[in-house]
């Protein structure tokens, strides 16, 4: 009795395994993948390389597309309507692109120039548009003064802008401040040269 029950159990297990394998094979056989390169907003050299085993297809034109399944890779040109049908919800969920601002400082200080102080409100407006803003403030200096002093000043500039944001109600844990000293000038100069365009913070709101 026990033996026949075990045999029956084995038989059913074998049937179940075969059925699952058949379903899995069907799924693999019919599974299809689609890749489409979208038009570039800022006109850089864009491309996606599709590798399947040893074959490689390069998509490097707007709407260049590849269909990949077990039989291989087929390239074609997709239509905006097809992209919309397959990817409408994914594209609709795309986060806003990071916004960048540069604010300038009075020489040797962490005080904004008058013009940049007026721009501060547009930074706040951009932050307000973002439901969960993540803000990075990076301070820079020109090449007047020592490296060490400029590291301190760059950091002070970033911290001053961070403090001003917090004072206007931005949550402390959403703003990071860091300094790069004179290492990343906007306008390259010789050491010791005063350059107003390098006395700045760069703010990314994302």
């Amino acid at each position: 009795m026990a033996r026949s029950a075990r045999r029956a159990a084995r038989w059913w297990t074998a049937r179940a395994v075969a059925a699952v394998a058949a379903i899995a094979l069907t799924a693999c056989a019919t599974r299809q993948e689609t890749v489409v390169l979208l038009p570039e907003k800022d006109g850089h050299d864009a491309a996606v390389v599709v590798r399947q085993g040893d074959t490689q297809s390069v998509l490097d034109k707007p709407y260049a597309a590849a269909q990949v399944d077990r039989a291989g890779t087929r390239t074609y040109v997709a239509s905006p309507a097809e992209v919309d049908r397959l990817f409408g919800p994914a594209l609709a969920a795309q986060p806003a692109r990071p916004a960048r601002f540069t604010l300038y400082f009075v020489e040797g200080t962490d005080r904004l120039t008058e013009e940049s102080a007026r721009m501060f409100d547009s930074v706040l407006a951009e932050i307000a548009r973002n439901a969960v803003p993540d803000i990075v403030v990076v301070g820079h200096t020109d090449r007047v003064g020592s490296d060490a002093a400029n590291d301190v000043l760059a950091r002070q500039r970033a911290e001053a802008v961070r403090a001003a944001l917090l004072q206007r109600g931005i949550a402390a844990d959403s703003v990071a401040a860091e300094g790069r000293g004179e290492r990343e000038p906007l306008v390259p100069t010789a050491d010791g040269v005063a350059e107003p365009r390098n006395r700045r913070v760069e703010i990314v709101v994302r």
Binding site: R31, V35, L38, R51, R70
Partner: peptide, 17 residues
């Protein structure tokens, strides 16, 4: 599941049935 995409830039979409 079937391919590896090397990304040189910038905007693209991928669908897997």
């Amino acid at each position: 599941p079937a391919a590896v995409l090397g990304v040189r830039g910038t905007e693209f979409v991928v669908h897997v049935d």
